[in-house]
């Protein structure tokens, strides 16, 4: 009896959790694998989408990083690591711009203001910048 009661409780808790994460509830295989991992949209989700959008504009082997400008100077590492998987033909580097000197910067959401970089493309989730 305890086993069945617990199973029902866990099933209800699972459904409640899925509901808490938010809709749409019948959207199978959404745009990214991170679309509904939290009620609010993760910037790393947009890092995935931005990587896909920027990839055709990036030369093979180009050094590139991904960052969220408003997080400066303590950028979230997971953003450029996302690029490491999403941009297999390029050479993603850490966001230490002075050390790694990337040729391209993919900026999530915010404007990336840096004297050495100019915007080359704008997307709904951010923009692509190229070193001058």
């Amino acid at each position: 009896m305890l086993v069945y009661a617990a199973a029902i409780a866990f099933a209800a808790a699972t459904i409640h959790r899925f509901h808490w994460l938010g809709g749409p509830y019948l959207e199978f295989f959404p745009e990214t694998i991170q679309d509904h991992v939290w009620p609010a949209r993760f910037p790393s989700r947009d890092a995935i989408v931005l990587s896909r959008r920027a990839e055709p504009l990036l030369p093979r082997g180009a050094k590139v990083t991904i960052l969220k400008p408003s997080e400066a100077p303590n950028y979230d590492q997971t953003h450029w690591l996302t690029g490491l998987g999403m941009l297999p033909r390029q050479h993603p580097v850490a966001q230490k711009l002075e050390e790694t000197n990337p040729e391209f910067v993919i900026a999530i959401h915010d404007e990336f203001v840096h004297p050495a970089y100019a915007k080359v493309a704008t997307f709904p989730e951010g923009a692509l910048y190229k070193r001058q």
């Binding site: 199973a7 699972t14 199978f28 991170q34 590492q77 997971t78 690591l81 998987g85």
Partner: peptide, 30 residues
């Protein structure tokens, strides 16, 4: 039903592991 709930959570992107995107996936691709 328990297994199907897990499948549902997976195909609606509710159970995805962040480390897949940040570590496991990039390492495998490389």
């Amino acid at each position: 039903i328990a297994w199907l709930l897990t499948v549902y959570g997976t195909v609606t992107a509710r159970s995805s592991c962040g480390d897949l995107q940040f570590t496991w996936g990039p390492k495998a691709i490389r």
